[in-house]
Design a protein around this nucleic acid. Structure first.
Lengths: 108, 108
DNA sequence: TCAACATATCAATAATTTTCGATATGTCAG
DNA sequence: CTGACATATCGAAAATTATTGATATGTTGA
């Protein structure tokens, strides 16, 4: 049985337009927060908020270097999300029931 | 340039625990709304709301049969989401800049 | 140490999403 | 046609998420 709460957290990264834009910026490589900020129409604290969600999803990882925090897309996290998505949408493989192709219903 | 709004819609399917539970139920095959309702702790109108979001994401498709609406996971929609996730997290491939591995920043 | 800076966190508000009950729509059996 | 049923839609309320400005934390260079 899956932990839906944890799974949902992963995909939270992708269901907000600001976060998608941040990911788009990160696709060209690691960026520090100030560069992201320059390219978005949001405030500093809002960026920080979204970066926290992105990091918690595992899709983004951060690296602090002195005053600056650098963010990049995590290959590991991305692969995990990909596998998870696959699992969540894949037909359940239960050894016993393999060929029942009809809709399950409690009527007729 | 991607349509972040449209992309976000796809992943909305996966960032709510009720919807993840619905998907889990659908993994074993097509189900009618009443069967889903029996297996969830939500009301009928709430289920209808979530099914709409799932259908709009393209991950689920519905089929009306008389009084009943049957839902199932769309293979096509799932594949699309998978490809999309891949794209969104993949390193951007720009012909000119191929080997710049350093963090982009406007300082130092 | 101090001032300037980068980022995180906090508390309040705004905006959005979710839930619920009531009702509308459409189907079927009688 | 009528009544029972399945599902969708609506409006209001509840819950959650996003945004903002203020402030805290930590770094750097003078």
């Amino acid at each position: 049985m899956r932990d839906h709460g944890a799974d949902a957290k992963v995909f939270k990264a992708f269901c907000d337009v600001n976060r998608l834009q941040i990911l788009e910026l990160l696709r060209s490589g690691e960026k520090c927060a100030c560069v992201l900020l320059e390219n978005l129409k949001i405030g500093q604290s809002t960026l920080s908020y979204h970066m926290k969600i992105l990091c918690e999803s595992g899709i983004v990882v951060s690296r602090i270097e002195g005053k600056w925090t650098h963010y990049k897309i995590s290959e590991e996290g991305s692969e995990y999300a990909l596998k998870l998505l696959q699992t969540l949408t894949q037909r359940e493989t239960v050894s016993s029931d393999c060929c029942s192709c009809e809709s399950q219903s409690h009527h007729g």
